[in-house]
Design a protein around this nucleic acid. Structure first.
Lengths: 178, 178
DNA sequence: TATGTCATGTAACTGGTTACATGATTGC
DNA sequence: GCAATCATGTAACCAGTTACATGACATA
């Protein structure tokens, strides 16, 4: 699957929940998939136009206030299911924090500790976000909530791991001579 | 810091260990930074040319067998230290596995379990790789090994977290009706 | 009437991969 | 002499962001 169709998955997925505009789709993606996915307008609008040309989404006149609302067609729903079944394209790893720490000798223990501290703070923030999302999802009677909880759980595990790693690394750095 | 200079960090970093060719730099990056960084030839050669034009690296005639070997200049070493101190550009999150699981209702529990299984296998492979790297680094008397171990530890924590999440998620999926 | 939010779209740019072309050197 | 590896480089393409231009609608 090309990278492109990953954006298609996100947009089709958003519209599978309920019909909405491109603007709303973007908001929905950043709000509910935000901790593991992102899309910009520059991707969403061209994608939406292509999906419409392919007959996968169609303008939904009902309930419009301003601008256009799109909804999935039957073909669109099939396509979403197909795309979800395709192999996951692997993104080459690029972790700026670890790149810095690997060459930490050029930085010195204190500057490295700063880098780790920042990673630790990001993990703490993430953990708080996950807690809030989990609370929301758990009080949602939607039967799909199980799937959402699985993604939340992934965020929690990753954040807790990063936290533990940061504490451990700070201890290691503290034992180093300047 | 622009994304571009992240590649500069990787290349300057590789050359800071010892002088080498672009080809060797790429191999060094995939072999020793492979679990958290990647560069392609299409990036390395233009970067190397730019670094040379900026006087940060210089051809090193000594010890050449074929092709050209580069080494850091004093300015290059300073530049590396500066770049390492710059804020880490954040990459927008894009996790294909979680994107699929979030819309898992369109897939069904079994197909979702397959997705999780793949993630679990990747984590296991990663854990084995980390074990091998840790063994190598721990038997290396280099004083910088502490920094390398910190990056290895990050990989281990992340892999173990993914493993725990996968087991937990498989259990959740198993309890779901088709 | 001014402000903020909703909304759409595009152009320029960036960072990056992939595929290809080319050739030198090494070892069997 | 042949195959593998070392080595350099570029062109085409791709996904994606950012910045900008534009304007409708609601409301204070």
């Amino acid at each position: 699957m090309s990278r492109q169709s990953q954006t298609e998955v996100a947009v089709l997925g958003a519209l599978s929940v309920e019909p909405m505009s491109g603007y709303a789709a973007r908001r929905a993606i950043t709000e509910t998939l935000g901790h593991f996915w992102s899309e910009s307008f520059g991707q969403i609008y061209p994608t939406l136009a292509r999906l419409e040309a392919d007959g996968l989404v169609t303008p939904d006149s009902a309930g419009r206030t301003s601008g256009s609302t799109y909804r999935l067609t039957a073909a669109g729903r099939r396509r979403l299911a197909d795309l979800l079944r395709e192999p996951i394209p692997s993104a080459p790893p690029r972790n700026g924090t670890l790149l810095r720490l690997f060459f930490g000798a050029h930085l010195g223990p204190e500057a490295c500790a700063d880098v780790v501290h920042e990673a630790r703070d990001r993990a703490l923030t993430s953990l708080a976000t996950m807690k809030a999302i989990r609370f929301e999802v758990e009080s949602d009677p939607d039967p799909n909530a199980v799937y959402w909880l699985i993604t939340v759980s992934a965020g929690e595990h990753a954040a807790r791991a990063q936290l533990a790693w940061a504490e451990e690394s700070l201890a290691m750095l503290a034992g180093l001579p300047d």
